[in-house]
Design a protein around this nucleic acid. Structure first.
Length: 468
RNA sequence: GACCCCUUCGUCUAGAGGCCUAGGACAUUACCCUUUCACGGUAGUAACACGGGUUCGAAUCCCGUAGGGGUCGCCA
């Protein structure tokens, strides 16, 4: 009997820039898969590119993962560079066993070879010229290359792609160890995944062809074969590659734009995975439902409009007080003034009317700013247009009406103003719109009697006076 | 160029040979609600890339074509 294998997944970003949104999705999938199976989700920083790796990028990865709520199980995150000697050891072991060989080609020589191949329409791959040579020069730098099988075929079983077979003649002898004795990525990933006990590799489709090469190392070493699941890439909204130059952003940017982590998770999950017709999937449900079978096999386009709608949904589900606290720093940034506790309380009261009018935290803060702005309020063009002489005359009357109110509930204010407007032979809008302009400085706001009630009689009267 | 993968409404997707006159969501259009803007409600427009097979029957299986993507580094 086979003992049930504990699922071990991993997320191995390289710290050479921000945490890419596409990477965030494969991280999410890997995390979900591990959590679903009660397995382990590991984080490994692939910092072997010393030129491009930075501490800032490492921090960005940690922060991005935390923000997204993707917790990893290895308290000591693996840094790949620190394990380079272990990787090199494997290369030498393979050399000894005759599974690899030394290649003394210079960069220039390789370049010439590739140019020749390109010019003649030949497949571009290393031709194995040192594979069987024994006349090794002394004291010259060399790289260690895998002695890959040249005949037959290699089949990769992928949980998304199915079984894919490639002729071994298509694969060349890749470099395992560089001439400076450092391991290449191809070697490092395989060794690390093996040593970390990773048995399920969920990663971007851009790694798919690499898999055939990596499988050669695993086979040569006689290690257990992990399960692969290659997830199609995310494209930009125009269908083009989602690169830094082409609209791709780091997760931190999405936070700044005002998206909620739970909304990001839901959106990213649905972008490339489905559970029937379900659109809003909580993280709890996602863990319960996630599988590899329903990963979509074609690339998806990133769509802000849909993200907005998902985000709007989660914002409306959030507690008003939490939302008020969430936008406080943004308001402070807009107004330049600290937001007081009393103001946060006021914002919480106004949140019901505010949150159904915004798609993200940024919009929410912008639409809420009139609550905390100090008087006199700046008026936007719409408000200026509303505040005609007639409108001001109406406001002057409303001032008296409002001043006489004992019950300052939204309903009470509405009734009083409606009655007054009707008595004057005017429509509700003739009173409500000028009031909106005075209280919010805008022609667009939450229900204005609700706003008035939350603002309080004193502030309402003062704001009316400001525009008269 | 070689190899590999992908192709359902504008977008994300459901679809495992008859349940499909192809469903849902976002977007969009119209109407309703309404003090503004939204929210909400109702209705609508809108897709199986193309061509051949297989089958009584194909969005679903096979082949080809076209389009798109990925990989071909001493980057990861």
């Amino acid at each position: 009997m086979n003992a049930p294998t504990k699922i071990v997944t991993r997320f191995p970003p390289s710290p050479t820039g921000f945490l890419h949104i596409g990477s965030a999705r494969t991280a999410l999938f890997s995390w979900l898969y591990a959590r679903h199976h009660g397995g382990t989700f590991l984080l490994r920083i692939e910092d072997t590119d010393r030129e491009r790796s930075t501490q800032a990028a490492v921090d960005a990865i940690f922060e991005g993962m935390k923000w997204l709520g993707l917790d990893w199980d290895n308290k000591d995150v693996v840094f790949q560079f620190a394990r380079r000697d272990l990787h090199a050891k494997v290369a030498y072991e393979m050399l000894e066993k005759g599974l690899a060989y030394k290649c003394y080609c210079t960069q220039a020589e390789l370049e010439e070879m590739r140019n020749h191949q390109k010019a003649n329409g030949l497949p571009m791959r290393y031709d194995g010229r040192w594979r069987d040579r024994t006349d090794h020069p002394k004291d010259l730098p060399f790289v260690v290359r895998l002695k890959a099988p040249q005949t037959g075929e290699t089949t990769v079983k992928d949980r998304v792609r199915g079984e894919v077979t490639v002729q071994n003649s298509q694969l060349d002898d890749m470099v395992l160890l560089r001439s400076d004795n450092t391991p290449t990525y191809m070697l490092s990933v395989v060794v690390d995944d093996h040593d970390m006990g990773v048995n399920t590799i969920i990663r971007g489709d851009d790694h798919f062809t690499n898999t055939f090469r990596q499988v050669q190392i695993i086979k040569a070493m006689g290690w257990p074969m992990p399960e692969y699941a290659h997830v199609p890439l995310i494209h930009g909204s125009d269908g083009q590659k989602f690169s830094k130059r082409h609209g791709a952003l780091g997760v931190d940017e999405y936070r700044k734009m005002g998206y909620l982590p739970e909304a990001m998770r839901n959106y990213l999950l649905r972008l490339g995975w489905s559970h029937g017709d379900d659109e809003f999937i909580t993280t709890k449900q996602a863990i319960e439902w996630f599988n590899l079978e329903h990963i979509v096999s074609s690339p998806a386009r990133f769509d802000y409009v849909k993200l907005d709608s998902v985000n709007a949904h989660y914002m409306r589900e959030m507690a008003d007080a939490d939302l008020a606290n969430e936008i406080a720093p943004r308001l402070q940034e807009i107004t330049g003034n600290a937001v007081t506790d009393a103001q946060v309380a006021m914002l919480a009261k106004g949140m019901a009317g505010l949150k159904q009018r915004a798609k993200n935290l940024k919009e929410l803060a912008e639409s809420a700013v009139f609550y905390v702005l100090s008087r006199p309020l700046p008026l936007n063009d719409g408000a200026k247009k509303i505040l005609t002489t007639d409108a001001k005359a109406m406001l002057a009357q409303l001032r008296t009406v409002i001043d006489g109110l004992n019950d300052f509930s939204a309903h009470s204010i509405e009734t009083a103003i409606k009655d007054h407007a009707t008595a004057q032979g005017k429509k509700m809008g003739d009173a409500a719109q000028p009031l909106r302009a005075a209280l919010s400085g805008s022609n667009v706001s939450p229900p204005i009697f609700e706003v008035a009630s939350i603002l309080g009689k004193q502030e309402v009267l003062a704001r009316i006076n400001d525009v008269l």
